[in-house]
Design a protein around this nucleic acid. Sequence first.
DNA 1: ATGGCTATATGTTATAGA
Length: 259
Amino acid sequence: MKIATFNINGIKARAEALPRWLAEAAPDVVVLQEIKSVDEGFPREVFEDMGYRVETHGQKGFNGVAILSKLPLEDVTRGLPGDEIDEQARWIEATVNGARAVRVCGLYLPNGNPAPGPKYDYKLAWMARLKARAKALLATEEPALMAGDYNVIPQPEDAARPAAWVDDALFLPQSRAALRRTLNLGFTDAFRTREPRSGHYTFWDYQAAAWEKNNGIRIDHILLTPQAADLMTGVGIDKAVRGGDKPSDHVPVWVELAA
DNA sequence: ATGGCTATATGTTATAGA
C-alpha cells in the first residue's frame, strides 16, 4: 500500500498537475492539504474517474484537507479533537482497508507566523491537540500514520539555509520541541529514519528563485506508529514535481507499507 | 530581503502562505 501526502496549494490551480502526478506515481492513498475549496467545489469526478474514492474536509478560500483512496475507506472523521470552536479545516482521518487495515490521518498544521502572536499561540495549541490524538492512536497498537504539512522544520539539516529561519514559526525552538514531544511518544519519521543525510526538502518558495537555488525546507512529514513502521518497505520525496508545469510550492512525500 | 510570488475571494485589492 503506497500512501502519499501532498500540499497542493489550491485544487483549482492544480487541475492539471495533480492528475498528472497521480497517473505517474499511482499511490493507493493520498492525503491532500490546502485544497482551498469548499466540499461542493472540489472536482471529485476527475479523481473518481481515475479510480479514487474522495473524502473532503474543506472551507472557503483557505486551508482544507482531503483523502483520495483506491482502497475502501471506513470510519471517516473530520476535524482534530480538542477544541469545539475551532472551525479551521486542517484534519481528516479514515481507515484504509488493504491486505491490512491502516488508520490514515491527514493534517495541515498551522503556519504560526508571525511569532510571537495569536497565530503562533494557535499553532502551539493545535500541536498540543495533535499530541493528544497521537497518544490515542498509539494506544490502539494498530498500524496508523499521520501525514501532512507539519509546518515544522525538525532539524537544521532539514533546511538549506537554517540561519534564515531562526525567528520563524516553522523553526522556533518551541515549535521543534512540540513536534519532538509527539515523535518521542513512539512515532517514526518515515523519511528521516531511512535517509540520515541533509539536503532533502519538500518545499521551495515561489519567490527569489528558491527552486533554482535549491533553497528548500523539509516540512511535509509522515509519522508512523510502531506497528506501521514495522510494515514500511520504502519511502521517498517526489522532488521532480516541483520542476513541472504550474507546480505547487510543495512536493509529494510517500511511504510504501506491506499492508 | 522592508517577504521580491502564487492562490483565492473578500475580486482590479486584501489576505494568507512559509
